[in-house]
Write a protein that binds this DNA or RNA. Structure first.
Lengths: 253, 253
DNA sequence: AACATTGTTGCGTATTATACAACGCTTGTT
DNA sequence: AACAAGCGTTGTATAATACGCAACAATGTT
């Protein structure tokens, strides 16, 4: 492990959407490093395009080179490109936010987000992640794992509680995953975000293995009993189309 | 400048969309560093989520943490979010690829790309960049700069030649920029990519300053004289709407 | 089975990252 | 206007470590 490299990478993570610009002194304080050390790290990051310095304010911000690298990450996922048109169509049909995600460890990671949403919406983003057990897409992704794999990923619990509705006991989650397997879709009833409901369905490859999930995210005000049914049907149908047309999955006769 | 940090950052840049996965030995050769040094850099990058190691193949690839950072970069640009719906509408109307870009040094950088495109399309991506002088959007962005600023950015020339149509002499470019100022839009007639034409228009802020550009990119087979006129009108109109509604620009009476 | 190649680790030392002090500049205070 | 405080920048000595070597483990090839 190389400590100066570690420091540089952790520095990059300090920036946030709330605080996109920071001064040398702020960074020095946050990292508990001498300002001359921070100064040299910043210069190195800047020379490679990972950080930009505003010449007027002397403040630093993340650099555009990160967009290039992110593009390379995303380009690995053919599914994301192939699913794009289907997700856009679903967004137009429902008027809501659509996500595509994969499992990474015990979290699900958003790979795509479509739809403009309305005034009341969710602040998720590509690259963002949430505990798998708490979200509809996460439950879809977990439901394809074996008991052994689940035990390895989730441990003994209790699981992280995000809202009062989050499932935290392992037995209860396993029950829920069994239900998800049977019905072929999952719901998130304010388990990740208060006031937000979500319906998700699996994307399967040619071998029938769940490789990703898609979801429709809706504020509960717009998600009554009747609408849940509509939304679930649309999500399942879209997921099936993507699985068949892009992944080569064949539903049995 | 911290040399070990520089090496780590340059390592991240080695990956490409053509080669998303590399072995330790490949990286060591490419960077002309000892494999044990590369091994430790990779471990450090992995521990911070910037690199992932496939446990089966032992190959390395870029990590998902980069998506988070990229999202933070993009979230700085309110314009990108606000312009999104207009760009999607333009993509649907034209059936072509739409870009939003800004100037960064003497290059223009894509901040957004909309539209699925057809079989014949351009392999551009968010974060990607091209020399400003060669592209329609680049000419729009350059046309708002003063003579002094242009001289500083472009130098004495000749400018980089990407195709046989690329403008490489400074006087000719200045002439072209004058024309762009007058007509309020720019065209790229196979100047960046062979076989690809492009029409662009400026996004202006409340002070009338050009802060970004949008464009429609079309293979020349689908871009005859009549269609050029249509496309130009649509691009100009969309750019004006974004400028007025999202940026507070007011066209004089 | 034998050999070649790749990945991993311990360790000595050549190299450098770190932090200190000082300086220049900008901003804030009186 | 004068002064103080704080921020950013730089030179440099040295404490700390990154580097590469050698050896080993694991994997692939013959």
């Amino acid at each position: 492990m190389i400590s100066s490299v570690k420091k540089a990478l952790e520095l990059l993570k300090i920036f946030s959407t709330d605080q996109p610009e920071l001064s040398l002194t702020e960074i020095s304080k946050r990292m508990d490093l001498h300002k001359s050390s921070v100064f040299r790290i910043l210069n190195t990051l800047e020379s490679s395009g990972f950080i930009e310095k505003d010449p007027l304010t002397k403040k630093y911000r993340l650099g555009l080179e990160l967009l290039n690298l992110a593009n390379k990450v995303l380009s690995r996922y053919d599914l994301r490109n192939q699913a794009g048109p289907y997700l856009e169509k679903l967004a137009r049909k429902t008027g809501e936010i659509i996500h595509l995600s994969i499992l990474d460890g015990n979290e699900m990671v958003y790979l795509e987000k479509k739809g403009q949403g309305q005034v009341l919406t969710v602040a998720t983003h590509v690259g963002g992640r949430n505990p798998a057990h708490a979200s509809a897409m996460g439950k879809i992704l977990l439901s394809d794992l074996s008991r052994r794999e689940l035990k390895e990923l989730l441990g003994e619990g209790p699981l992280k509680k995000l809202t009062t509705n989050t499932i935290t006991e392992i037995p209860k989650l396993l029950e829920e995953l069994e239900r998800v397997r049977r019905q072929g879709f999952a719901l998130d009833n304010e388990e990740t975000f208060p006031g937000i409901r979500c319906a998700a369905a699996p994307i399967r490859d040619r071998n029938g293995k769940t490789v990703a999930a898609i979801s429709v995210t809706v504020p509960k005000q717009r998600m009554g009993k009747q609408r849940i049914k509509e939304i679930c049907q649309l999500v399942i149908e879209t997921a099936r189309l993507i699985s068949e047309r892009s992944m080569g999955w064949e539903t049995s006769a």
